[in-house]
């Protein structure tokens, strides 16, 4: 199985990629911190991954998404599963009083995901196969404020993913 993981060094992505490594999957990891990506790819290789490649990227740099996804495509050839696992845990109070911060959170948890979904789903359509999933937090559904920054993905993605 060929798997693309975005936000690959997050705890949940790490756990998922370990499970797939045990099944000898081929993995392509995208995250921001190169040292941690290198450590993770060593770990996954020892655990049995058939191949592990990675790409260093700041997720808010949406212009670089096309390039990252096309690198994943060249490494994996066919993408069977793409998992978007990145995200931040915004501080609601700060976001309500600081627009810059709110905009940054919207970029991380909202726009970047839409951009990636757009690129990946184009590719999956071309392949005529593959699954795209976005991992969001249940915290976003709980006790939602009028404008909840944690809840952004839950509000936005059902629509984008369906598009």
């Amino acid at each position: 199985m060929n798997i693309l993981l975005v936000g690959a060094t997050s705890a949940i992505a790490k756990a998922i990629s370990r499970l797939y490594s045990e099944r000898n999957a081929r993995l392509f990891l995208i995250a921001r911190n190169e040292a941690r990506l290198m450590e993770l790819s060593d770990d996954l290789t020892v655990r049995g991954a058939q191949s592990v490649d990675f790409h260093v990227m700041d997720i808010t740099d949406t212009e670089s998404h096309i390039n990252a996804v096309s690198n994943a495509k060249s490494a994996l050839e066919n993408i069977d599963l793409a998992l978007i696992c990145h995200g931040s845990l915004p501080d609601q109070e700060i976001c309500e009083s600081d627009f810059e911060q709110a905009a940054q959170e919207i970029k991380i948890n909202g726009l970047s995901v839409i951009s990636l979904c757009t690129e990946i789903s184009k590719l999956l359509k071309e392949q005529n196969s593959g699954t795209l999933a976005v991992i969001t937090s249940v915290a976003g559904d709980r006790g939602r404020h009028l404008i909840s920054f944690t809840g952004l993905p839950n509000l936005w993605y059902p629509h984008t993913c369906r598009a």
């Binding site: 450590e39 993770l40 060593d42 770990d43 020892v46 655990r47």
Partner: peptide, 8 residues
């Protein structure tokens, strides 16, 4: 969380 492999 010191749970990574480095090399076999």
């Amino acid at each position: 969380f010191l749970d990574s492999f480095l090399e076999i």
